[in-house]
């Protein structure tokens, strides 16, 4: 499988376009070696001890050796190499970094990786089985529910979390409970349309 995670690949985006239609998921062993490498960099004398953090990311066990000051977001991106989760503010103000942690949507920038030791994390890369799309992902494409796409991973993870909570029924309730995810491109109406469509489908099943 063509891995998106090839370090030296300067032509990556060309490949990405060729791979259109194929979901590319990072294979765990590829980033595992990266993690080991980073750990060596980080563990320097004089600073505070790093510790082992075990996470289950998208179903795959991941062992990270991290200093306490690494946020869950940076652990996912810089250490586990899953860059689908985005950083838009690093202060809980935008929702771009939303992931699902032990079944609940959270902003990964405002928690520490060490605090989530033992947790199960689902990121955008893992919301659907490999090679498949989650109904929300399909609906987002169909409804043109993004422009630049930067808020999209967070919007989708957040919507999955919201639907699991089961508290939002009406469109107004969905809007309120999705308000923790900003979209600067102004795809708001299309995003809510996409979510409502999936939510209504689910309701009929």
């Amino acid at each position: 499988m063509g891995s998106i995670f090839s370090f030296e690949d300067g032509f990556l985006f060309l490949r990405s376009i060729q791979l259109l239609g194929i979901i590319v998921i990072v294979s765990i062993d590829v980033y595992q070696c990266y993690i080991t490498m980073l750990t060596e960099i980080v563990e320097k004398p004089g600073l505070i001890r790093s510790g082992q953090v075990s996470l289950k990311v998208n179903g795959n066990p991941v062992q990270l050796n991290l200093l306490p000051w690494v946020s869950l977001l940076d652990a996912i991106r810089d250490h586990a190499g899953l860059t689908g989760t985005k950083k838009g503010c690093d202060h809980g103000q935008c929702g771009a970094c939303t992931v699902i942690c032990d079944g609940k949507r959270i902003v990964s920038c405002l928690t520490l990786a060490v605090m989530k030791d033992g947790s199960e994390i689902t990121t955008i890369e893992g919301v659907a089985p490999e090679g498949d799309l989650h109904p929300l992902q399909k609906a987002f494409i169909e409804h043109d529910a993004f422009q630049c796409g930067y808020c999209t991973p967070g919007q989708i993870c957040s919507a999955i979390g919201m639907m699991k909570e089961g508290k939002a029924k009406s469109r107004e309730e969905v809007k309120e409970l999705m308000s923790g995810n900003l979209c600067r491109c102004g795809a708001n109406t299309n995003i809510i349309d996409a979510i409502m469509e999936v939510q209504n489908q689910d309701a009929h099943e």
């Binding site: 809980g92 959270i106 979390g161 409970l177 923790g180």
Partner: peptide
């Protein structure tokens, strides 16, 4: 208060 994500934390 805050957002659904923050209230989960």
């Amino acid at each position: 208060g805050a957002s659904a994500q923050i209230r989960n934390m």
